[in-house]
Simulated scan of single mutants.
Amino acid sequence: MHFELLQPLGWQPYFQQQLTLEEWERDRPARIVDYQRSVITVDTGEERIALPVSMSLPAMTVGDWVLLDADGRFLRCFTRSSLFARKAPGTAQRAQLVAANIDTVFIVCSLNQDYSLNRIERYLALAHEAGVEPVVVLSKADLCTDDVEARVAEVQALGAQLPVVAVNGLDASSVAALAPWCSAGRTVALMGSSGVGKSTLVNALVGAAVQRTAGIREDDDEGRHTTTSRSLHRIPGGGVLLDTPGMRELQLADCEQGVEDAFADIAALAQRCRFGDCSHRSEPGCAVLAAVEREEMDERRLANYHKLLREQAQNASSVAEKRAQARAQGKRNRYAMKIKNRRD
């Protein structure tokens, strides 16, 4: 296996170090480029191989690196450099893997009625928790009736070093502004709610119609959701791009540090609060509330901070409780079976 075949898939020294010399010479690394309900598609740099989904395989997702033997059989999954996960949609109390081994995430938010600072902060918390560089991409700049530069400045205020780029996904010269994050060996993910123009951006970055797109609905200014699966695409110039379905039920779980990092300004002010366990709600001597009163901090931002912390704590607790209940039920079932076997 040659390095030049794997680098276009995002191969990096971090994964190389996980191989023995014998494995490098005998086996084949491959990256999951498409994950469907019954089949996983991996790319070795020379060919694509379909692996049937089975209970014997570990939990994996698009972007994972796996090791195959010479016959294309699964051996193991590489240790991840990063992982995005979320609480599964609906009532299921479990975590859902979203994407692995991502270097940069493009948080896509359109400049029409979908524009929401609260939603951007939610994605920033996920990115920080995963240890992935976030870049906010404000799409559909051509449809924005407000001052685009003012919107960009408003989003940049969410983080001192936060890159923010406004683009028109239908204009190649506009999308070219994202090229610095798409260099050889780098993996970029697109995340955002339905209809914000992710598929259009994918097609523009890849240079081909790899994702189906749909127009804007005139009645509510919303785009139609078109992407239904997660998949990897090579970008001309060497990068790799991962597209994900719109996350209509994106919820945080086990993401407290990510929330704290996304609201670093609040964390910094908290160091000056009178009480070390200040909740920044009504305590005397709260430096955060004082900043809000002086209009140095937006009250909306503090309210969203509290909301996201509550949400992640509730979801983390419910997932842990569900797992504990499952373990307890398993013990009861095994005990009942043991008693039954004794009677028999």
Rank of each mutant, 00 (worst) to 15 (best):
Q17I: 05
T213E: 10
L143C: 04
T91Q: 08
Y115I: 01
D171I: 13
H306V: 07
Q251N: 15
F275Q: 04
V136W: 01
G330W: 00
N315V: 07
F84W: 06
R343C: 06
Q16P: 11
G90D: 03
E154P: 05
I32R: 00
S183A: 15
M60A: 06
V188E: 06
A291V: 04
R300S: 12
M60Y: 00
S110Y: 05
Q314W: 05
E299R: 13
R234P: 08
L232W: 12
S279A: 14
V53M: 04
V135C: 03
L51Y: 01
D114Q: 01
N203C: 06
Y115H: 09
D265L: 10
S318R: 15
Y115F: 15
S54A: 13
A253W: 12
L124C: 08
R343W: 11
P8E: 12
N101H: 04
N101Y: 05
I32H: 02
M247K: 07
A324C: 05
S54F: 03
W24G: 05
T145R: 08
A125N: 07
E260Y: 14
Q113P: 00
S279E: 07
M55P: 07
A303K: 13
L178Y: 11
E295I: 05
V210F: 09
A326E: 11
N112D: 15
L178P: 06
R28E: 10
L138G: 09
T200M: 13
R28C: 14
R86W: 01
H306T: 11
L83F: 03
S56T: 12
S82H: 04
V240E: 04
M60E: 02
V164A: 02
Q18D: 06
R310G: 07
S193Y: 11
M1H: 14
D142V: 04
T187D: 02
D64E: 00
G63W: 00
M191K: 07
F263H: 01
A290Q: 03
P89N: 10
E22D: 14
S110R: 05
L242M: 15
A326C: 01
K338L: 12
L178M: 11
N203R: 13
L68K: 01
L190W: 04
A268L: 08
H2Q: 14
L162V: 03
G258L: 08
P245A: 09
S229N: 15
V108H: 09
A157H: 10
A267F: 00
